[in-house]
Nucleic acid binder design. Sequence first.
DNA 1: TAGATTGTTAATCGATTAACAATC
DNA 2: TAGATTGTTAATCGATTAACAATC
Lengths: 206, 206
Amino acid sequence: MEKKQVPDIVIARLPLYLQTLNRLDQDGEYNTSSKDLGKKIGISAAQIRKDLSHFGEFGKQGTGYSISFLKEKLEDILHVDKVWDMALIGVGFLGHAIANFNGFQNHGFQIKCIFDNDPEKIGTKIGDYEIYDSNRLEEIINQKKIKVAMITVDAEQAQEVADLLVKADVKAILNYAPVKLITPKEVQVQNIDPILELQHMTFYLE
Amino acid sequence: MEKKQVPDIVIARLPLYLQTLNRLDQDGEYNTSSKDLGKKIGISAAQIRKDLSHFGEFGKQGTGYSISFLKEKLEDILHVDKVWDMALIGVGFLGHAIANFNGFQNHGFQIKCIFDNDPEKIGTKIGDYEIYDSNRLEEIINQKKIKVAMITVDAEQAQEVADLLVKADVKAILNYAPVKLITPKEVQVQNIDPILELQHMTFYLE
DNA sequence: TAGATTGTTAATCGATTAACAATC
DNA sequence: TAGATTGTTAATCGATTAACAATC
């Protein structure tokens, strides 16, 4: 269910704020302001203050925000103050790339198990993780209490996989297949589809 | 420059309409309606009609839209009635996955050349395409008149690559690196970042 | 202190929806 | 013809921005 208390469009911006704070932190900065953040992200200072005001008061007049403090607050709000275990379903080229991606760990996520239905792949390993047979999906995800999954199977199999994930009590699905998944409304779904992004841009071209 | 005649948020939905029409077409359907499309996409029928009305009148009262006709019109509007040549920069796991992705061709895009700065990789091939040295980026992209590029290098190198692409007269960049690229405003940029999508979802979890 | 920047309010701006005449 | 669905207008809804008192 959507918490309409805070608009979803505001929620979508918070990870961007956190990303920027992480960068500033890495660069050795200690403080920032809505003006500074806005400039870096490309939105107005007023919007950042308005967005944050939904959750509390994190700044100080005159001096702005402590980067480490605001970072911590945003991590709390987004529930990435802990690490979410994830399942990955589909070991094609893209699945492989994601399995080998090392950017999850520091941002609240880690892959915990990987599935495929290709007998050639089942039982082999990617990094530390064994590839399980997809028919054990519900069993293993249930047992490991995994709530977040990424789908990197073909468009044709994506809905079927999503149905299994829902049955296994997964609550958030990042879907790389170019189809709209049908899920219960309490299950979060986000799609990543390069074709849509490219076509969005070519509208403005030529 | 953004054509503010039609809101960007409308443009962003058009590829989704096209995707859905393609699916209906593949399923052997000939006609659809704003109601039907809306249901499949998860938005209101009124919104679809309003969006399309920015570009013309594509339907018929009583019977709705011809799928092939509307598909054609949307392809024209989005400029994917032709095939855009693309450059891919960065041959890590992700670059490899994208180079091997076969979903571009039928939707208005094809990879034409690939770059990396790793001497081990330069000169080798992925599929039909040779991997070129990144220091030849401007030369080759210019010569091939490429206007669309995908960045799959590390966060640290992404801005540098973007600068080179801009110099080479690339006009649209799909950026997989987790950084906001600074580009002239006539250059389109879209970002793909799984961390942002995951954190967006975990807000609603627990 | 003076300057800077917050959080919040009210005003503005823009997007979505509801409704309906037109018409296939 | 009767039913369905368009394109469009006006009303509603929601998001962004501007402005400013409070205060570090």
